[in-house]
Design a protein around this nucleic acid. Structure first.
Length: 444
RNA sequence: GGGAACUUGGUCUAGUGGUAUGAUACUCGCUUUGGGUGCGAGUGGUCGAGGGUUCGAUUCCCUCAGUUCCCCCCA
């Protein structure tokens, strides 16, 4: 993309309403615009990041054998009356009446809808196990939206639902989700720690929340410092292997890690003092096993091998896709702007032409730009008629992890500069070497 | 649900009972070109909405809306 033809409304000054770094930077970098309290338009740059995160979630879910689909944002109140949650959910549910005076709602979650789909079509235990998921906008009418997309009223979320014949099978689905979530967060450059959590209105005895440690997190967390040494890493895993998935669960949840909702001071005291940590965290996902709560209420049953009708065991599993954009920025920024991890960066690298209008510099940049694209990369070429300082400041703000700087001074020596946003270091090399370097970083 | 504050060009703001300050942004010209260049000219505001007091309200009072903060709440 050429910056001169893009829509990137960056701000030099910080809008007054933004209180935390990620919110400030998203506004300044032209990623979002508030439409009303807790509701945002995603401008091109923000939308690009949102889609990168969505793509990672999709890939990892499909890798785990979960099936993508899409359910609507607006739902009929009838299904929610069946499950009993129409009354239970309270003020957070946005209720709407249509022209025929029917009660509708903007879905805060989709257990009812998915259970209805399931019961409409699935009759036999032979069709199990089944895990369906979608990534769709949700609405929760928060009393006090804040922190930009971290606590919006409208938010983009992946939610998945597993249907299994037995509790054991459903717990395997639970473990599978835990593994796929660990992989997903690591691909985004994040360490998200699974912590024992509280079921809340969804219910459920088995539930873990995934938290990214950050000073601006809204949850207070307590954990054994050993847990931060754990990495899922590049290991291969067979998602159908029950024991293998269970061992990952063991590995990542056997040490103490809880939010304030489930914190047990006595258990915490048993950890050696030098390993006890309390901190704040951003919740970026949660997994639940809730048994037959919805299947019994809504009649989601299958025939088992003995011909008996039995309610299926279910769980639901969520990742806050839009919240992750904020969480990643909270984790990766400095005083100049955002620093994207390679996995989610909106553009792979920036090209900074320090002498726009100079024939030699322009030609070198055009050549870099077209070759990077031909290599399957997605560069952002700053071809504006702007001073070097302005170009660098924009690049720093929007946080592309890599930058190729082209100026007449280097061109005379036949080199360009490849710089890292993370380290601030740069290295001179030929344009060909620069392209190879960027391609290697992204594995294309 | 309880409490508090705020609302002035796109953005950040000053200020005032007689329709408003500065910065930034944007446009144009010249200048400049390796970290937000300098100079000049220009564009851009029914001072959140409605009502009241007043000769006159952006300013004072009331109501409403929006936004932010604290408590609370929270997949």
């Amino acid at each position: 993309m050429r910056l001169s033809r893009y829509f990137l409304p960056v701000l030099k000054e910080t809008p007054a309403e933004a209180k935390i770094a990620s919110h400030r930077l998203m506004l300044r970098a032209g990623m979002i615009k508030q439409a009303s309290a807790g509701i945002y338009s995603w401008l091109p740059l923000g939308y690009k990041v949102l889609n990168r995160i969505k793509a990672i979630v999709d890939e990892e879910q499909e890798r785990a054998g979960h099936i993508p689909m899409l359910m609507p944002t607006l739902q009929s109140a009838d299904l929610w009356r069946e499950s009993g949650r129409y009354d239970d959910y309270g003020e957070e549910m946005l209720r709407i009446t249509d022209r025929h005076d029917r009660d509708m709602l903007y879905g805060p979650t989709n257990e009812e809808l998915i259970t209805d789909i399931f019961r409409s079509y699935v009759r036999s235990y032979k069709d199990l196990p089944l895990t369906l998921y979608h990534i769709q906008w949700k609405f929760r009418d928060e009393r006090r939206p804040r922190f930009g997309v971290m606590r919006g009223r409208e938010f983009y979320m992946k939610d998945g639902y597993n249907f299994d014949l037995t509790k054991d099978a459903a717990l395997h689905a639970y473990n599978r989700h835990l593994v796929s979530y660990l992989r997903s967060y690591e691909r985004m450059g994040l360490q998200a720690i699974p912590m024992r959590a509280d079921g809340g209105p969804i219910g459920g005895d088995y539930t873990h929340e995934f938290l990214v440690l950050a000073e601006t997190g809204e949850s207070e967390v307590f954990y054994d410092s050993q847990i931060t040494d754990l990495k899922f890493g590049p290991r291969q895993i067979d998602y159908d292997d029950v024991a293998e998935c269970e061992s990952v669960l063991e590995e990542f949840t056997s040490r103490y890690a809880r939010t304030d909702e489930t914190h047990d001071a006595a258990l915490f005291e048993e950890i050696p003092e030098e390993r006890r940590r309390s901190a704040r965290g951003i919740e970026v996902g949660q997994i639940f096993y809730f048994g037959t709560k919805y299947s019994e209420a809504m009649g989601a049953t299958v025939q088992d091998a003995d011909g008996k009708q039995v309610p299926v065991h279910m769980g639901s599993h969520g990742i806050g896709v839009s919240r992750l954009v904020g969480a990643i920025i909270e984790a990766f920024h400095d005083d100049k702007g955002i620093i994207w991890p390679e996995g989610v960066t909106p553009f792979h690298c920036g090209i900074v032409n320090l002498k726009q209008g100079d024939a030699e510099a322009d030609a070198a940049c055009e050549s870099l730009y077209s070759q990077l694209k031909a290599a399957g990369l997605d560069p952002l070429y700053d071809d504006r008629d702007e001073r070097a300082g302005g170009k660098f400041a924009t690049m720093d703000l929007i946080g592309l992890p890599w930058r190729i700087t082209v100026g007449p001074r280097g061109l005379k020596a036949g080199v360009v500069e490849v710089g890292s946003r993370r380290t601030g270091q740069s290295e001179e090399m030929t344009p060909e070497a620069a392209i190879a370097r960027i391609a290697e970083i992204y594995g294309v």
